[in-house]
Amino acid sequence: MQRYSFDSKSIVDFHKRISSLMGVSFDPEFIFKIGLKTSRPACLALKAAQRQDELKASKYFRRMLKAFLIDVRPYNHDNIFAIAREAGLDDRKLSRDVNSKSVEEELNKDMEEMEKIGASFQDIVISTAEGRSERVSGIFQVDSIVEIIDRLLPGLHKYTQGARLGVGQ
């Protein structure tokens, strides 16, 4: 896993660079505005959410991105669980699971996998059912990824591109 070290000015500059590279808008000062010290509580909550419902968990992930990076809602226990409710999750079950040893172990397992393959947060890994896979780093144009999928799995049917789902939906 790639590790960064920042001061308060360089983190804002880094966020501006990410925003420009990806073509997405968010508040480059969100870390300071929301009071973020560690993202571990949000990660544990997301990991616990995956136990309940994968689809709702992915919605929860997107809603947290929007809430904290775009809407700059305060990063605290109440909001982490309020956003879970908004995503349709059982926040009572979530609060029980989030502090469990097994959820922590599942989080550690994901982090070990990321470390093992040397992935970063700008990476995706594309895998086919036949067992071929490729790690893609820092590509934010969909055409480039379609080319990779075409190479890994020639002839995979493409539908007409649908409407974007959008963060927060």
Binding site: I18, M22, V24, A42, L65, F121, Q122, V142
Partner: peptide
């Protein structure tokens, strides 16, 4: 959930 790279990757 608080890493901005996620916004770009999710768009893709």
């Amino acid at each position: 959930p608080v890493c901005p790279w996620g916004l770009g990757v999710e768009r893709v």
